[in-house]
Design a protein around this nucleic acid. Structure first.
Length: 589
RNA sequence: GGGGAUGUAGCUCAAUUGGUUAGAGCACCGGCCUGUCACGCCGGAGGUUGCGGGUUCGAGCCCCGUCAUCCUCGCCA
């Protein structure tokens, strides 16, 4: 039996006093006074207090007294003003209450495994009962923001002339990039579809088709290990444009970025956004997605290290390694020797073999390695960091990769711990001119830094033959608060350059043709110069909701090991299904 | 694949150096209560301390293994 509702739990106000109303919802709380029972009734739109008074009848009162948290009920009653002075300003509907006349219990639920009020229970439990977790108001808020972001993107992209096109989920596996999720074909024994890592190739083909401006809010799949900001399936705003260079793509997308910022932070960044050179950023911040809400830049300390007698530094330099450091304002006063040991342990977790430190004090430099710094070295150290008493200097002598990783991680951690920036601030920038290729020592070949269809910078084209590692790409990443929120490139539309790049990637013409024949053929058949970008939709939701975890903005996410605790996916399947798909488990696994 | 953290009542947590019968708040059950709003008061029930071994007179606590969740390196754009 359904009481058809005449209002939601967020609707009723003084305007409705005296009217009959019917509400449906969940019992958010019950307060039983014996002669008087109150129910807070909750739905997506709000909470309305329902009161069961003695004059409503013994039967109804007895029924009301049986209600428990999270029961699903319908109530018919009369909207009445609350007693004078008993209004609840915390509720939108706090001026009134519903005097119950009839009650129906749709679902008398068992005691919930956790409470909807108060702090969230552990995540394992939340994911197991996700439908209950999503009832918590903070979760609903995230999904309202997520919805608004999607609407804003659709509106902006449409206004800018982009055409929304859907592309296949069942595609074909291509080499390079992430590991594919595969789907076995029943009709074609031994053949497989792959789920898209992104709609990359399709959107390029849409440009060849002349669609000119394409976008899609697209689901992407990558079978790689997960992180706080990575799920096996995630959503991107996928974009492609024809007859553009990199500045045209970024300047178009900036308009969207500014609109998002205005909508979700109340403050739009100044355009154009800063365009930072990849190599410069790597040197100054140690990664390609620098958090620019604060300084604390990495400095090359090789010249100063060479002035010292400290063996660790000297050997590092002689071994072709780097000596770099950061200076953390106020860190010297805040971090004890033991705290710094903790930082060293943190660094060790990332492969750092040691963490040298020096405290800047009024009397000079202190710490175990300070004695290796002669006065002129001390002065140089203070000068390069513009260090002041109370600061903490952290130095790493290690490979380019390790010193970068350790210092950039310490930089972020310490800035957060020391409150070196406004946590509510947003900083947007482009990082541009990425390397086109990276040398893969294991496979003994180049691999694409972004993907194999990335166009080199025109001025670097000649290096493709002589020094491929030096070739820079027409690539750009959108970085927000140290998070990579998007990335794209201008694509190769010239079959000759494309073949050259395939060759560098170790793909023979035959292999390239086998894997990408359709693309190469399309490029030969009238491909315009084109390029695009994809924004990480989930990551943007995270940022604008202040979440530190991508799972909290996905309705039904996977755990770090890729399982769904609610459904039990991935699960075993009936042997008959395997047989139909021509699959047989490998012995012993 | 590597490193780290966590796992005690339905939930959130506590339990001194390894030492009596593992506690508290919330939730749950029973009772009382006519203006509460995360009501209040009284009473009650609820535990294989993730799981399996081991050390010990004695283990929630120490050791080994294992499972799950989270963070992270590798991986991934």
């Amino acid at each position: 039996m359904l009481y058809q509702r005449t209002a939601t739990c967020g609707d009723l106000s003084s305007d409705h006093v005296g009217q009959m109303a019917t509400l449906n919802g969940w019992v958010d709380a019950y307060r039983d006074f014996g002669g008087l029972v109150f129910i807070d009734l909750r739905d997506r739109y709000g909470i309305t207090q329902v009161v069961f008074e003695p004059d409503s009848g013994a039967e109804l009162q007895a029924q009301a007294r049986e209600l428990r948290n999270e029961f699903v009920v319908g109530v018919k009653g009369i909207v009445a003003p609350r007693l004078a002075g008993k209004e609840n300003p915390k509720l939108k509907t706090g001026a009134i209450e519903l005097r119950a006349r009839e009650l129906v219990v749709y679902n008398a639920t068992p005691t919930p495994p956790f409470e909807m009020h108060g702090p969230a229970p552990n995540e394992e439990l939340r994911l197991t009962h996700r439908y209950l977790d999503l009832r918590r108001p903070s979760m609903l808020k995230v999904f309202e923001t997520r919805h608004r972001l999607g609407q804003l993107m659709r509106r902006m992209m449409s206004e800018m002339g982009f055409l929304e096109v859907e592309t296949p989920i069942l595609g074909r596996s291509t080499p390079e990039g992430a590991r594919d999720f595969l789907v076995a074909s029943r009709v074609h024994p031994g053949h497989f579809y792959a789920l898209p890592q992104s709609p990359q190739l399709y959107k390029q083909l849409l440009m060849v088709a002349g669609f000119d401006r394409y976008f899609q809010i697209a689901r992407c799949f990558r079978d790689e290990d997960l992180r706080a900001n990575r799920q096996p399936e995630f959503t991107q705003l996928d974009v492609e444009m024809s007859f553009v260079d990199d500045v045209m793509v970024t300047s178009t997308m900036e308009k969207l970025v500014a609109e998002m910022a205005r909508e979700f932070t109340g403050h739009a960044p100044e355009l154009p956004l800063p365009r930072l050179d990849y190599h410069d950023v790597m040197e100054r911040y140690g990664n390609d997605r620098p958090d620019l809400r604060f300084g604390v830049e990495l400095k090359d300390l090789a010249p100063i290290a060479a002035m010292t007698e400290f063996k660790v530094f000297r050997e590092a330099l002689e071994g072709g390694k780097r000596v770099r450091g950061i200076c953390v304002p106020g860190g010297g006063g805040r971090y004890s020797r033991k705290d710094i040991d903790g930082l060293a342990e943190y660094a060790a977790g990332m492969g750092g073999k040691g963490l040298a430190w020096i405290k800047v004090e009024d009397a000079g430099l202190t710490g175990p390695i300070a004695k290796f710094f002669k006065p002129e070295a001390q002065a140089a150290l203070l000068a390069i960091f513009d260090a002041r008493p109370g600061d903490l200097i952290l130095i790493v002598a290690d490979s380019q990769a390790i010193s970068s990783l350790v210092l950039t991680s310490l930089r972020s951690r310490l800035a957060a711990e020391l409150d070196l920036y406004d946590k509510s601030a947003f900083h947007y920038s482009w990082v541009v001119r990425f390397p086109l290729l990276a040398w893969d020592a294991e496979e003994n070949r180049y691999v694409a830094e972004h993907h194999p269809f990335t166009m080199p910078l025109f001025e670097d084209l000649h290096l493709l033959d002589s020094d491929p590692a030096k070739v820079r790409a027409q690539a750009y990443d959108l970085v927000v608060n140290g998070e990579e929120c998007g990335g794209g490139t201008i694509r190769v539309h010239d079959p000759v350059i494309q073949s050259k790049i395939f060759a560098l990637l170790g793909l023979s013409p035959e292999q390239a043709n086998e894997k990408f024949g359709f693309l190469l053929s399309a490029l030969r058949n009238g491909a315009p110069p084109h390029g695009g970008i994809a924004l990480g939709f989930d990551r943007l939701v995270m940022l604008y909701c202040g979440l530190d975890n991508i799972r909290d903005c996905i309705a039904f996410p996977k755990t770090a090991r890729g399982t769904d605790l609610m459904t039990g996916a991935p699960g075993t399947v009936d042997p008959r299904q395997l047989k139909e798909l021509h699959l047989r488990p490998i012995q012993g696994s």
